[in-house]
Computed example of a mutant assay.
Amino acid sequence: MHPGPVPRSRHESPAGKPLRGAPRLRIAAASCCGLAWHARGASAAPAHDALSPAGVQASHIFSLWTLTLTVCSLVFAAVLIALLVAMTRAPRANRDARPDLSPLERPEKRVGRVVGGAAAVSVVLLFGLLLADVATDRALSRLPVADAVHLEMTGHQWWWEARYADDAPGSGFAVANELHIPVGRPVVIALKADDVIHTFWVPNLHGKKDMIPGRQSTIEFRADRAGAYRGQCAEFCGLEHALMAFTVVAEPPAQYDAWVARQRAPAPQPANALQAQGERLFTTGNCAGCHTVRGTSAHGVLGPDLTHVMSRPMLGAGTFENTPANLESWIKAPGSMKPGTTMPASQLSAQDLNALVAWIGTLQ
């Protein structure tokens, strides 16, 4: 179920042809406005709102944005008022009236003082915004990271891979398109890109951070309020850029620890003959060449780790709800649900497909 191809460049289709303007604008606008979560069948979208900060980093950015908006709004209003006053007080003239050139001989000192004062105020306001920007940047870099959760996030075309660091040898694990973090505890994420430039963005928790192939950067934040927050790739990265979302679930420490314990566990054993047939089809067929399911012989690395795939609310990087019906449709014809994916369509019979879906359904 690998969800994405690698175009020849960031602005070419899988066939190597430039993307046409209309689809490109449609995709880019959808993602930037947070519309990718219109995801087919999505019933409840996590919050995706830069104006509703849920962490200290996002609060700093929101305060700077509020100050900037206030200053710019007041300046804009002042300019409009000055324009209206000038238009109201300007003398009326007809076509035959001669131009008034007297100000060239007699400088208008009052007007000069007003313009000079306005310029001085503008300089002061701009300098104040510069200081506020520097202060915000310093505040963002001073987040205490003692006892932080460390993980690695890799952007692929078009899905997200998160690997949680080993607290003990062999205890690390990977998830796809979903992060769980404890409330009140800092998180340090190492950001990587597997193919083209992506951008990590969870506006409720922090600003944007680019993910550049061949380079590693980090982003640090802390969630101070429990909830589910939507993340999105904010850099156009190919055909399905708009459908490249993920969810950050901030939960109390006890719930987070319980989630980690469940994720570290291997896949359960089949409970009946139908599920055993599904596991055999998965591990001996093409699925195992791309996907890992811990506890089985499947150790593929091209696609998402599916060990606990059915515990995730969405499939296809936020494209559609994780239900047995959608899962079956995805396996049969993934290209019809997410055009551009490189996962091939299934050639399984209806009986084998039913067995495969039954077994995958146990991967909680």
Rank of each mutant, 00 (worst) to 15 (best):
residue 2 H to R: 10
residue 7 P to M: 04
residue 11 H to E: 13
residue 11 H to W: 15
residue 11 H to C: 09
residue 15 A to P: 00
residue 20 R to D: 11
residue 22 A to K: 01
residue 22 A to C: 01
residue 27 I to K: 04
residue 31 S to T: 13
residue 31 S to Q: 13
residue 31 S to V: 09
residue 33 C to M: 15
residue 33 C to I: 09
residue 34 G to H: 09
residue 35 L to D: 08
residue 36 A to Q: 08
residue 37 W to H: 11
residue 37 W to P: 00
residue 41 G to P: 02
residue 42 A to N: 11
residue 46 P to R: 01
residue 54 A to E: 10
residue 65 W to F: 10
residue 67 L to G: 02
residue 72 C to H: 13
residue 72 C to D: 12
residue 76 F to V: 11
residue 80 L to W: 00
residue 83 L to C: 01
residue 84 L to I: 02
residue 86 A to F: 02
residue 87 M to S: 12
residue 89 R to A: 09
residue 94 N to W: 01
residue 95 R to Q: 11
residue 96 D to P: 00
residue 99 P to V: 11
residue 101 L to H: 14
residue 106 R to S: 14
residue 108 E to W: 05
residue 110 R to S: 11
residue 111 V to C: 13
residue 113 R to T: 08
residue 123 V to G: 05
residue 127 F to S: 12
residue 127 F to P: 00
residue 135 A to D: 14
residue 139 A to I: 01
residue 139 A to H: 01
residue 144 P to F: 05
residue 144 P to V: 00
residue 144 P to L: 01
residue 145 V to R: 10
residue 150 H to S: 10
residue 153 M to W: 15
residue 156 H to R: 07
residue 160 W to R: 06
residue 162 A to W: 12
residue 164 Y to T: 07
residue 164 Y to F: 13
residue 165 A to T: 07
residue 165 A to F: 02
residue 173 F to Y: 15
residue 174 A to E: 15
residue 175 V to M: 15
residue 183 V to T: 15
residue 186 P to R: 04
residue 186 P to H: 06
residue 187 V to M: 05
residue 199 T to V: 13
residue 209 K to E: 15
residue 218 T to L: 02
residue 219 I to S: 13
residue 221 F to Q: 05
residue 221 F to L: 07
residue 223 A to D: 07
residue 224 D to G: 12
residue 226 A to G: 10
residue 227 G to C: 04
residue 228 A to W: 06
residue 229 Y to A: 03
residue 229 Y to F: 15
residue 234 A to G: 03
residue 235 E to N: 12
residue 239 L to R: 06
residue 241 H to E: 07
residue 242 A to H: 14
residue 242 A to M: 10
residue 247 T to Y: 11
residue 248 V to G: 07
residue 250 A to R: 05
residue 253 P to N: 03
residue 261 A to H: 08
residue 263 Q to E: 14
residue 263 Q to L: 12
residue 265 A to G: 05
residue 267 A to G: 09
residue 268 P to Q: 13
residue 274 L to N: 10
residue 279 E to A: 09
residue 289 G to H: 04
residue 290 C to H: 01
residue 297 S to G: 07
residue 301 V to N: 14
residue 304 P to C: 08
residue 307 T to M: 11
residue 308 H to R: 14
residue 309 V to I: 15
residue 311 S to W: 05
residue 316 G to D: 03
residue 320 F to N: 02
residue 322 N to S: 10
residue 330 W to L: 04
residue 338 K to F: 01
residue 341 T to D: 06
residue 344 P to L: 10
residue 348 L to A: 12
residue 350 A to C: 02
residue 350 A to K: 09
residue 359 W to R: 07
residue 361 G to H: 03
